[in-house]
Design a binder for these strands. Structure first.
Lengths: 204, 204
DNA sequence: ACGCTAACGGACGCCACCGTCCACTTCGCT
DNA sequence: AGCGAAGTGGACGGTGGCGTCCGTTAGCGT
């Protein structure tokens, strides 16, 4: 059933993915399918035959970032100092999402049927949860931190929209530093409000 | 030459604004003008005659929130303890924006020609800048805080999208608490990355 | 070299939103 | 009550994105 693609077809597929990556990274997911096709130098029909739904295109286009996500948490877990590992996860995650705004949308289940994304997301969250437990035990991370705070952070991070990628990354870097400050266990801590039940992002 | 509106016209104008407030608060600014007109029970022409551009409708619809913004910073300035006043500003601002997602978009110059908004925004920022200086002098606010951090926070806060207003407000509350932790002057502080030049929000 | 067929992309119809025009209605003044 | 002007909303043409159809092109196996 899944015949190997013909050479030109494979070529086009690659060019479509390149175009999608470039456009999604630069402008987010709202770019029209047509635009992707135009940039790839193919007709709309070709794009739709290769990726019948936008979701599939998005999933394929952000496969690299999804892998990067995994690498980030794995590196965090591997770090000898759990708290430092946790900080690295926060910093790199923020930067990753700042560099690819569209990725955040996809990651956040703005497209709810993204099975692959959901699985990878769950894996990353579980791993970072383990890391967080260790960091708390080591005393670096505040005891009342919960995983929801990390999701909160990623959602918040996506709110940071600047004109250029450079500016966005810079802003995100400072944001990450502030977040780490907030997460750090400190003698002068005050209790936090309860964690809200963070459902999927609203369409607004 | 601005004749007072006829009674029915005034009535319609009010209903249009009510509809706009309800829809903008519930779904953000992306709602079609038609939808506002439909909800207000008027024709599209009426809506367009009263508010030729969406910008004007938005500005009018969020006049209350804009006033609330002013009140928040004024209350903050009036507080005997500058640091506590600053915290109140952060908390109330986050809640205000969480309650009216569309307001954040407007406030953030997503519609760049919003003169009224720009002026009010500038006033609020100047006032809160003064408050921040006092809070820093009093020792509550970290010395390397800058106004850009507050804008960063508002932008980040808008990223928090939850299904219901209640959930969004709850999430925003916890976020505000974390932010305050981050802003608090502390003995165990680490230097922050530089403040990025935060231009207007990107279209993405 | 040649034909079979996968693959292509221009063109089409559909729908939603936009902003404007105009024939009809309603207010408000005398 | 009656008239002029302000006000109204249905209807229209334009634009842009969407997903699909089909006549044509070009890879690849013989």
């Amino acid at each position: 059933m899944t015949h190997p693609l013909r050479s030109d077809a494979r070529d086009n597929r690659e060019r479509i993915l390149d175009a999608a990556r470039a456009l999604f990274a630069a402008e987010g997911l709202h770019v029209p399918m047509r635009e992707v096709a135009r940039r790839a130098g193919v007709g709309p029909a070709t794009l739709y035959r290769r990726f019948p739904t936008k979701q599939e295109l998005v999933t394929e286009a952000f496969a690299d970032q999804l892998r990067a996500c995994r690498v980030i948490v794995d590196e965090g877990l591997a770090h000898p100092d759990p708290w430092r590992g946790f900080c690295l996860v926060v910093e790199k995650t923020c930067e990753l999402h700042a560099r690819h705004p569209g990725f955040t949308e996809a990651f956040m289940a703005a497209y709810p049927n993204a099975m692959d994304f959901a699985a990878a997301r769950a894996y990353s969250l579980r791993s970072v949860g383990e890391l967080a437990r260790r960091a708390q035990r080591a005393g670096g991370l505040r005891p009342d931190f919960v995983l929801g705070d990390l999701i909160l952070m990623i959602m918040a991070n996506r709110g940071i929209g600047a004109a250029s990628t450079t500016a966005r990354v810079a802003a995100s870097r400072r944001f990450a530093a502030l977040v780490i400050q907030a997460f750090r266990a400190s003698s002068e801590r005050v209790p936090l409000p309860p964690v809200p039940p963070l459902g999927p992002a609203s369409p607004g």
